[in-house]
């Protein structure tokens, strides 16, 4: 809390949510977690199709970038898709895709970065993600996947610096 934030007023609103749900919720509920995991497992059959759809979106965003340039609106669209893929890859049982999409997201996160970035490095990320899917390389325990991810990350750090 900085000095300029004083004076400080502390407010303790009544806990109406606890009243509404009927009391204190168990801090851990293994049965609920198991039900949730089972619900996700039921969706598992769809995961590869859904992941393929996200990667299709990424390739479409890349095609737009190739036509219009990274500094156009297409650059931000590409970031949005890469960022979504970062959040979905591991849930869809491809943690390696999350890792590579995280690297791509960092590369094209801001307009400033997109001015510096060669499109070839973006293409390398998108190509690596597609290859991971095609060859069913899901984690960085796979030597080729790990090497590829590390190489991409190293090049991103060299260009835009390490994560803040």
């Amino acid at each position: 809390m900085t000095q300029r934030e004083r004076p400080i007023e502390i407010i303790n609103p009544p806990n109406m949510l606890k009243v509404k749900v009927g009391g204190r919720i168990a801090p851990a509920d293994p049965a609920a977690i198991a039900r949730a995991e089972a619900a996700l497992a039921e969706m598992k059959e769809e995961f590869s199709d859904w992941l393929a759809e996200e990667v299709d979106k990424l390739e479409a965003a890349l095609a737009k970038v190739q036509a219009q340039g990274l500094t156009s609106e297409a650059g931000d669209e590409l970031f949005t898709v890469a960022h979504d893929l970062r959040g979905l890859g591991a849930t869809y049982e491809f943690p390696l895709v999350t890792r590579m999409a995280a690297s791509l997201s960092r590369l094209v996160e801001t307009g400033e970065k997109r001015e510096l970035v060669p499109v070839q490095l973006v293409e390398a990320h998108v190509g690596a993600i597609r290859a991971a899917l095609r060859q069913n390389i899901r984690t960085d325990e796979h030597a080729v996947g790990r090497t590829l991810a590390e190489e991409l990350e190293t090049r991103v750090i060299a260009l835009v610096g390490a994560p803040a």
Partner: peptide, 15 residues
């Protein structure tokens, strides 16, 4: 612990 609600009771009321 007694008095603590399992999720399937507590969360039914959450919106």
């Amino acid at each position: 612990m007694a008095g603590e609600l399992p999720a399937d009771i507590a969360f039914t009321k959450l919106r």
